[in-house]
Design a protein around this nucleic acid. Structure first.
Length: 553
RNA sequence: GGCCCUGUGGUCAAGAGGUUAAGACGGAGCCCUCUCAAGGCUCAAUCCCGGGUUCAAUUCCCGGCAGGGUCACCA
């Protein structure tokens, strides 16, 4: 068979460059020894979830820790998956978490010489190499219809054979020249398949950067390399692109491990040097007792927007992911709390081999620690930004008074103490946490554990001699007096010694006051809260609580 | 089902042929304390099973089992 003639018939494109031209167009990168070139290659659905961030972070770290390049390539070979504005959305989502590309789609950079970065725009390159493959007898047209392929698969399943297009099942592999040209003349649609030279019985060992030695079976599947619309499949595009974009390290999910044989074979046939591969384990979640890979479809709550809306501290999400990426990150972080996380020596081969369950508790812990390290002003900015985007009208009004918020945050964060409080886990929760400092969002629950008489006695005694100028000690002294006046023990020890002699202890009196002022039985330092609220408002709240207590009876 | 990957506390996990098998989150308790936190201290909790190699195996090998992935003109 004249394969050169066939190649011209199948791919008659006039605009294809000689293959060597592509090598010249995309020369090897001039980078220092050991520098890794990595990429994020999403399909343009625009939906990015935690698993993508995880992988993007690994790519970004691997590149930048080695002085290399991290670029963005859009795998838009599947028309059906395309969503408008997706690329911008990906870039914006990652940027929120501090992950930035050096080059690629929609990235303005002088480095953008390995483009185009949209696969659809690279059609001529793929077609040039597919044509060459046909000419060299490594590829052929396949006219099988979807129904025929289903039929083959059905038969294979019945015969308990491996499914796929290979060996004797690859009917179009042995089409005669005459048959091919007749089909072409009839205008039958066709795909280009690889004529796999592999045996399917041969196995060899491949060294994966994460998994270590993996056993791979030589590919014998005649996979599709060019779809009927002339656009390549992932397999072909991956090999061509990562070669010409000079990727040195391909980090991708372990679901790709099973198609590694195809890729390796393609690299060999095309005469390209394959990159290093790192197949990452996927993030898992529990579902009715079992583990399951995080999925875009089923887990919208794991979309990155979810974390933005919930107001997680972006750096905390990144640090959490870092602990999953390299488990010794946490130890390093504890030793170097002041250091930027990018100073950590990230190592691709220290990544875990098994899928990790996503742990929200751990994220919460990291997020609250991260927030607790902020100054009140910084925290105010962080919460304020969240409020602008996701807050209510009331929230926005509250946050217009920065000074007041900062005062509150100093208390809630415990900035004056030696150890910070860690009450704020994320912005949404943090904003709600301080609602009681504002009259319009103050929704008290008067859950007094004492009768009207005691409540009134304590509250009236407190309001009688409250002075905002009192410091904490004086304030507490007065509270003790008020407690005593109401028949409560003024110190806990006395109460414990003889509970029957008192109606309660200072602790109980404090609780009554706390409920009156904050509307809750628990809060940070009450003295400071009253100070922040001011005398007028504090007394007004106490009065309101007294009224409520009276009505309750 | 074939092929591939992975099995250390509830979770994330370090680890080496001989260890009291780290650490973190979570849990329990104590201390501190006007409550709640935070913090300090303490505790409970792990090597999937069966063979082999070895003086010695959680670690190496082989089987089993379990979990996961993959078998498209999707990536």
């Amino acid at each position: 068979m004249d394969t050169v003639k066939l190649a011209n018939a199948l791919i008659p494109d006039g605009d294809l460059l000689p293959l060597e031209e592509y090598e010249k167009l995309y020369p090897p990168r001039n980078l220092p020894e050991g520098a890794q070139v990595t990429r994020l290659a999403p399909s343009p659905t625009g939906f990015i979830h935690l698993g993508n961030l995880y992988s993007a972070l690994a790519d970004e770290r691997a590149a930048h820790v080695s002085g290399g390049v991290f670029y963005l390539r859009i795998e838009d070979t599947d028309e059906k998956r395309k969503v408008e504005g997706a690329v911008e959305s990906v870039i914006r989502s990652l940027d929120y978490f501090g992950i930035r590309f050096d080059e690629g789609a929609e990235i303005s950079s002088p480095l953008n010489v390995y483009g185009p970065y949209y696969q659809r725009r690279r059609a001529p390159i793929y077609r040039a190499f597919a044509k060459d493959l046909i000419a060299r007898g490594y590829a052929y047209p396949c006219f099988c219809t979807e129904e025929q392929l289903d039929e083959i698969r059905k038969r294979q399943t019945e015969e308990k054979q491996t499914t796929g297009y290979y060996g004797k099942y690859a009917v179009c592999r042995n089409l005669t020249e005459e048959q091919i040209y007749r089909n072409l003349a009839e205008g039958k649609p066709f795909v280009i398949r690889l004529k796999s030279p592999g045996s399917g019985a041969e196995k060899f060992i491949f060294r994966d950067e994460i998994k270590g030695e993996v056993s791979v079976t030589e590919n014998d599947q005649d996979v599709v390399i060019l779809k009927s619309d002339g656009i390549p499949t992932y397999h072909f595009a991956h090999v061509i692109d990562d070669h010409f974009m000079r990727t040195t390290l391909v980090i991708r999910g372990e679901e790709w491990l099973s198609s590694l044989p195809v890729h390796l074979q393609l690299f060999r046939i095309l005469g390209f040097k394959p990159p290093k591969y790192a197949h990452t384990c996927s993030l898992m979640k529990t579902e009715n007792g079992g583990k399951r890979k995080l999925s875009k479809r089923k887990d919208p709550e794991l979309s990155l927007d979810y974390y933005r809306k919930a107001g997680y501290f972006p750096l905390a999400v990144v640090k959490y992911l870092m602990t999953l990426l390299n488990s010794d990150f946490e130890e390093w972080e504890n030793k170097n709390p002041q250091e930027d996380y990018t100073r950590f020596k990230f190592r691709i081969n220290k990544m875990g081999k098994s899928g990790a369950l996503f742990d929200l508790e751990k994220l919460n812990d990291i997020s609250r620690t991260e927030i607790s390290r902020l100054s009140a002003e910084e925290c105010c900015d962080f919460l304020g930004k969240w409020v602008e985007e996701f807050g209510t009208q009331a929230d926005r009004a509250h946050f217009s008074d920065r000074e007041y918020i900062t005062q509150i945050l100093n208390l809630v964060m415990g900035t004056s103490g030696k150890k910070r409080r860690k009450d704020i886990v994320r912005a949404e929760q943090g904003v709600r946490l301080i609602d009681y400092f504002f009259d319009d969002t103050f929704k008290p629950e008067y859950c007094f554990r004492f009768g009207k008489e005691e409540v009134l006695a304590v509250l009236s005694a407190v309001s009688a001699d409250y002075d905002p100028a009192d410091d904490n000690t004086v304030w507490f002294c007065k509270l003790k007096n008020a407690a005593a006046a109401a028949g409560f023990a003024s110190d806990t020890a006395a109460y414990k010694a003889d509970p029957s002699a008192y109606k309660g202890s200072v602790t109980d009196a404090a609780e009554i006051l706390r409920i009156a002022v904050t509307g809750m039985p628990n809060s940070p330092d009450l003295c400071t809260i009253m100070h922040i609220l001011g005398k007028q408002r504090s007394l007004a709240r106490i009065k309101a609580a007294m009224l409520a207590a009276e009505e309750a009876n």
